[in-house]
């Protein structure tokens, strides 16, 4: 067994200092993992992602990246290792799409003094093409739909060229075609480039269709982790979500979860 690439050990975190969202959580990503993190509202999925990404500091426990404590990394070093796609971001000023994707090159030292190079632009344009936003580069971000902006954020994360991708509900505002497009892109990045990917998602079926593994978070603890078919059993989901659930299977073995009326 290789050592984990990104690892949380006994991590405690609380927003108000009293009720812990993460009560002492263990979670690890090994190189090449493609994990879907599922669980009910308030289970701590996004919080765990924020702790793993270095944004939130746990009050106890350790987070390590390649064996080194996360807090030993500068923001720039972290960005070179981990790219994060958040559910929301703000846009105060009218940057255009290419500007925003070029910001993904910041950690590589591009554009801090002077403008980005042709090479950086090439990387940004390729990232835009990968998420199906070619031709959008001169559009203003404020003109984009929610789904287009989400794809823009993903393109920027791709432009970071970091080996780890953490995505918080990346398909939340994507239509079916773009959901499939995004997951097949993640699948290819994982398969062909060996990138390590964690997706937080409420869409169990989409996560199950593409992720190699699912991890089920409940009250801040990873209660189960495994291949989609072994994890998605009715009794497991009924216990976690508290609703009657049926699990079927498509041809080829892709599991399909439905909530009973």
């Amino acid at each position: 067994m290789s050592t984990p690439l990104l690892e949380a050990q006994g991590v405690r975190f609380s927003y108000d200092g009293r009720t812990p969202v993460l009560p002492g959580t263990d979670f690890a990503l090994r190189e090449g993992d493609f994990v879907g993190l599922i669980g009910p509202n308030g289970a701590g999925k996004s919080t765990l992602l924020h702790v793993l990404s270095g944004w939130l500091r746990p009050s106890a426990g350790k987070v390590r990246l390649a064996g080194r404590p996360l807090r030993d990394y500068t923001a720039r070093d972290l960005a070179l290792h981990i790219a994060v796609v958040l559910q929301r971001e703000e846009h105060t000023f009218a940057f255009n799409v290419l500007d925003l994707v070029l910001m993904g090159r910041f950690a590589h030292g591009a554009g801090t003094l002077g403008f980005e190079s042709e090479a950086d632009r090439g990387i940004a344009l390729e990232a835009l093409a990968q998420v199906g936003l070619e031709g959008f580069e001169n559009r203003r971000a404020s003109e984009l739909s929610g789904g287009e902006y989400q794809r823009l954020a993903i393109a920027r994360a791709l432009a970071q060229q970091s080996p780890i991708l953490l995505l918080d509900e990346p398909t939340a505002s994507l239509d079916l075609a773009h959901q499939r497009h995004l997951y097949s892109l993640l699948d290819r990045l994982n398969r062909e480039e060996g990138r390590t990917i964690l997706v937080v998602s409420h869409d169990i079926n989409a996560a199950a269709a593409w992720c190699r593994e699912l991890a089920l978070l409940q009250c801040g603890e990873v209660v189960r982790r495994g291949g989609p078919r072994e994890l998605l059993r009715p009794e497991v989901l009924e216990e976690a979500y508290g609703v009657p659930v049926a699990v079927g299977e498509l041809e080829g073995g892709q599991p399909l979860v439905a909530v009973r009326r």
């Binding site: 500068t74 960005a79 970071q160």
Partner: peptide
């Protein structure tokens, strides 16, 4: 350029490498 990134919000800026 740090300020450009900061205008997307502190967390986004952090993930892009801004201290």
């Amino acid at each position: 350029r740090h300020l450009d990134l900061l205008s997307l919000g502190e967390q986004t800026a952090h993930h892009l490498g801004v201290p």
